[in-house]
Design a protein around this nucleic acid. Structure first.
Lengths: 329, 329
DNA sequence: GTGAAAGCGCTAACAT
DNA sequence: ATGTTAGCGCTTTCAC
């Protein structure tokens, strides 16, 4: 691979001039610019970003650490981040922790080692990863989930209120024994959505904790069906688990919404195509991403400003899965 | 941020020794190892990967450039890549081109500038990106889609055969006017699946070209419905477009599979939850990812070996959407 | 087994 | 407006 010196020699100028041309400084003679550009083309020269980053002691990369690449929630969120990042001159690298704290720690370490300009993270709950991040000088924005014990810029939805709304909706639909399937303790969305559910309920809550994955939702649903306190409706606190629960119900031939009402958190791209269509709590995903990216841009500009928390509203989308055909018998 | 010299000073050794300890060389006195490790901990030292990469003139990063992060196809594929990569000592960075050639070119350029150790790419069809890659010394593996005019390691499924099977399946189910919705010209999967469809058909083909996105599928379906050669079945060559077509059909209240048969390419996680459940051509996604990663490992080890093409089988999964309730009237 | 020193490729003072 | 030079933080000969 040719270096900047090869280009300089070819163009008959100094490396500094080549650098100036390539970085768009206007204090260069047009003739030289032309010569440099020709040399660049002829040698098929490509600047070595590693060297540049070392010299500048900074990069233009953001690490976006998400908890599950298979979760449609992140699709639009990442787009939102990317659109803002690009405009601000940053590129993003996606890291998929797969809800695995060890993987998350690996990616956090890598992001720091690679001198990333910033990190946007949806924490899988690893306190260690959070601490590493907080102990470092790297600008961080937490998205979707609060960073464990972290005082950083944060973008979330009003999880508790949305969960309350979802639960009340099931109550108003006539369901009486409403259970909740939620995610791991210590993950803010799991805990807050659970709290909203408990809050809306007048009776004793029935709670199943699992991971935020589809299989977890399946197993939790199966457990609830077999339990003595078998519910007649379930509030599930994320989309993947909702799919699992739905599949479990389908496998057992249990009628939704007749025998079992269902409300899921997070929109699912095909929620309206399933029969019964799925009642969900929809989040402004693209906007979440945009907002997180904006906060990160601001944070990089002003590292010591007071951290902000942005809370966006989520919205209940009632569909068939929570619409009881007839009142409880 | 502390440097290796800070650690060296703190431990009372030379930077070279710190480097040896950190890189696991066993020719270091155990006492010194202990002192270095203590100093590392006390200073919260983290090696600067940018400097290391520059010095070593190589990185341990792979760029994985996929064409649409929202496509479930890539979820398992990326997992397959990641599992092999990790084992081989590489980390992957995900780049989402969103079926946008310009974005793809940006990511390719970035991957080269950043001195990535390898690239795995699902081409969105940009000849420019392909050329840039081929003109560079970076090891490349094409996945899912053949690289335009590229002679590189490639992992694909037998698209033409699978498309033939899918089309024949519709014929055998009693459909007579079968259309095909496919992706952009120049994208190998779009072209090969179309060819398989044409091949299996005895009559004049009806073809709608669009992008590989959901909206494209919706619009293409709408167009077919309005056309004089309105089909009674459709073969759709990727999952996202299939969803779009399905939504279009649902919006218009057209009965599937009665009025319109449907077979989609690519499995969809919830294909069995939709009513009617979706007949699909399933690909071995995880295995595709693993295989691509293995090829990349081999290619890095032997840059001048002859490029390999691995063709994996795809499998038809007949479900309700292609099962005609009664023969054509 | 350990240290001194060079250099990866680039940018940014500084000098001219 | 252009060139010279130092140095970003690390690894790796090369001496000892």
């Amino acid at each position: 691979m040719p270096t900047i010196y090869d280009v300089a020699r070819e163009a008959g100028v100094s490396a500094a001039t080549v650098s100036r041309v390539l970085n768009g400084q206007r204090t260069v003679d047009p003739d030289m610019v032309a010569r440099v550009l020709t040399a660049v083309r002829e040698l098929n020269y490509r600047p070595n970003a590693v060297a540049r980053n070392l010299r500048r002691s900074r990069t233009t990369l953001w690490a976006v650490i998400i908890s599950d690449i298979g979760n449609p929630f992140f699709t639009d969120t990442v787009r939102g981040i990317e659109d803002v990042a690009q405009q601000a001159g940053y590129s993003i690298v996606l890291c998929n922790s797969d809800e695995n704290p060890a993987k998350e720690e690996t990616y956090v370490t890598a992001a720091l080692s690679e001198q990333m300009a910033g990190v946007i993270i949806s924490s899988s709950g690893s306190a260690k990863a959070a601490k590493t991040l907080l102990d470092s000088p790297v600008p961080v924005v937490a998205i979707d989930r609060v960073l464990p014990r972290g005082t950083v810029d944060t973008v979330v939805v009003d999880n508790e209120a949305a969960a309350r709304t979802a639960t009340r909706h099931l109550l108003e639909s006539g369901y009486e024994r409403i259970a909740c399937i939620t995610g791991p303790e210590g993950v803010s969305t799991a805990d807050l959505r659970l709290r909203g559910y408990v809050d809306a309920l007048a009776v004793e809550p029935v709670v199943a904790r699992t991971d935020f994955r589809e299989q977890g939702g399946y197993d939790a649903m199966a457990g609830l069906l077999a339990s003595p306190s078998r519910p007649d409706a379930v509030f599930v606190t994320n989309n993947l688990m909702t799919v699992g629960a739905l599949r479990c119900l389908a496998d057992r031939g249990i009628d939704v919404p007749g025998e079992m009402g269902l409300v899921g958190f997070d929109e699912i791209p095909w929620a309206d195509l399933v029969r019964p269509s799925l009642t969900t709590v929809a989040q402004p995903t693209y906007e979440l991403g945009r907002m997180a990216a904006r906060l990160l841009v601001d944070r990089i500009a002003a590292p010591s400003a007071k951290p902000a928390t942005v809370v966006l509203p989520a919205e209940l989308r009632p569909r068939q899965s929570s619409t009881r055909p007839s009142p409880a018998s």
